[in-house]
Design a protein around this nucleic acid. Structure first.
Lengths: 215, 215
DNA sequence: CGTTAATATATAGGAGTCCTATATATTTTC
DNA sequence: GAAAATATATAGGACTCCTATATATTAACG
């Protein structure tokens, strides 16, 4: 009957929980990816490039999004280039730079991986609607904090978008408004990575966040 | 002005959010591990073995906890054995089996990695107390579901422990009771991986969960 | 009781991730 | 225009991670 060591803080236990769930996400990704001969890292890169077909992304940006070093990103990009799933174009203005874009093959490989079912979806499905919504909002809050702290690159979330008008409507089910598509939407529809995102300037971003939080 | 493709379900967006946060967890782990010459996978294994010094764990079990194949687990275990951070003992009853245990060196390497600060801790710190608590409970709910579905191995959580008496006290701050240490504790103290965990039988596990949920 | 099936782990082989350190080519800066 | 900063690539090495298969034991069953 040992007494437990230093009692763990709630931070630590949340991290433990996130890491368990994260493990399952990774397993799902292996299953998704296997069919197309990809692995989770490669799948992440293709996903990242989807919806950025205009400008592509630089090697450094990809590394930052993946949370790996730049040479590692080069490695994985090369692996995908060999497979013909993406292409490197020389940067227009800056000749040092490179612009990585999805090829047609890459896009179809991505579509071939059915994103539908998986263990993670099952776990999320075990939550009721309110919990799902709260979880989404909590994650958004965490991600935003990391973004504000420059710990991760800019995410294309509604809450930092210039087109986002939080709580613009009285309708409790669809309180928010997207000025880009000019439509109302609900908390449950909040995006983590919207292809139409345009970052708002810091001042209005802060104001938007404030309005979003105080609901 | 492209119209967005098929609108993503909330499942998908929660997965996106979890994966962003998971990326940060991984970066934190690299930073933690680097000092001791480890990598995140190795760190996970050592963490897993901590608090199981009596019986150790089998290769297969370690693989299941990590969500990797058995040969991969063998690889990583061998790497750690080379470094002297763990040892393999032959199984007592079953001579095929192996029991992997932490060595003293392994334990101190683990302690050397300061678990304190990191990006994830910062992101979690951005949440208020209520949100942290809700997040912890939500994660527990998800993990339990995965466990019940045999998608992940048994986790040593309070909610599946025979010593756990949910909402046994009137005190709102410390409603739960742990019959092992015979003490009251709060939602915020719920464990994800308790070394004193003993799995309850299915029937009482279900009853406990029910009591916990309807709290 | 002995053959067959199941289990726990290890090996083999190979692609790819991931790191640090450093080289190369271009901007940028003063 | 030289020095500092930036974007990417290379080199070298440890390790992760897979599938397929081999080995040793234990369990199952006719």
């Amino acid at each position: 009957m040992e007494t437990p060591k230093t009692p763990l803080s709630i931070d630590t236990r949340i991290r433990e929980g996130l890491s368990r769930v994260g493990m399952v996400l990774r397993v799902d990704e292996w299953n998704r990816a296997k069919a197309t001969g990809l692995n989770p890292t490669q799948l992440s890169i293709l996903t990242l490039l989807e919806g950025r077909e205009k400008d592509g992304l630089g090697v450094k940006e990809i590394a930052a999004h993946l949370g790996v070093s730049q040479p590692t990103a080069t490695d994985s990009i090369n692996a995908l280039e060999r497979k013909g799933f993406l292409a490197k174009r020389q940067g227009a203005a800056d000749k040092r730079a490179v612009s990585v874009v999805l090829t047609a093959d890459g896009a179809s490989a991505l579509n071939a991986t059915d994103t539908g079912e998986g263990l993670a979806a099952q776990a999320i499905g075990a939550l009721d609607h309110g919990e799902q919504e709260d979880l989404l909002v909590t994650l958004i809050k965490m991600i935003r904090r990391l973004q504000e702290a420059d710990a991760i690159p800019v995410q294309r979330m509604c809450v930092t978008c210039r087109y986002f008008a939080p709580f613009a409507h009285a309708d409790a089910a669809r309180p928010h408004h997207c000025k880009f598509v000019d439509a109302a939407f609900g908390q449950r529809e909040l995006r983590i990575d919207c292809r139409d995102h345009v970052e708002a300037d810091p001042a209005s971003r802060a104001a938007t966040w404030d309005a979003f939080q105080t609901g």
